[in-house]
Amino acid sequence: MEVRKMKMPKAMDFSQKWDNFKRLSHKFSRSRISLVGLFSVVIIITLAIFAPLIAPYPEHAGAFVDYAHASIPPCREHLFGTDIMGRDVLSRTIFALRGALLMAIGVIGIVTPIGVIVGLVAGYNSGSLVDTILMRISDVFLALPSLVLALAVAAVLRPTLFNAMLAVCVSWWPWYARLTYGLASSIRNETFVQAAQVIGASHFHIIFKEVLPNCLSSIFTKMALDVGWVILIGASLSFVGLGEQPPTPALGTMVADGARYLPELWWVCVFPALVIVWMILSFNLFGDGVRDALSPEEA
């Protein structure tokens, strides 16, 4: 009897979560364009993970030189052509997806917890000294355009993918802090928060168990919509040489290198650029779908 009682909650919890998931996925799939986004995102992630198996010339992703096959325009052997060192542009583009995705996952993975915690603490103590200090600090970061700030930070550090990630994080966390701050400072006046205070629940409980769950849908929406922009800013950093260093392929670096040989060797520059556009577009379509699925049903 006792054993059955202990097991019941988990099973019930799970079925409730499964129902929730079904409801959200139904709302998501109502829009065809979100499904296109989701499909695209899955393709991008698959390409990035299985790059060594999918790329026609995986060895071209490293330090590889073959002047005999340099500067070949797009053809059957090289769908995206080859660059001036004879490397297959398609293979290098597929490998470059890895860096771009890593950048997005890394930045959003670091920035979300930091921004959310700062926003929650400041929002819950809205009007106090803690609020003023935390939010003025984040305002300072917001005052500088994020690309300029990221460029400045990346220029100071050694140019690696990790440092580029850090640079973007520095300019990106205040957006999460702002978003969560706005939500938390209004939710803390809700009756259920007052009820928890009267009961005597700790600040920790109120912030993370009462307020945070009511912020999550907005935070997830922002995360989904931000992936594309982080990829863009990462590409911008590698365009000016502040990201992944050669010979590892990076989309921004490939566009920058190819741009020098425009318009004759147009394929070296145009294909990586199109891939950037495709990535941002797919993640934004996907993000829009997530937003529509998570936003409350309009009556």
């Binding site: 809700e190 009756t191 259920f192 007052q194 009820a195 009267v198 009462e210 769950p213 009511n214 999550l216």
Partner: peptide
């Protein structure tokens, strides 16, 4: 305390 509106006094999440 029991509040006026149980729609807002219970955490919807």
């Amino acid at each position: 305390i029991v509040f006026q509106d149980p729609g807002t006094s219970l955490n919807p999440q």
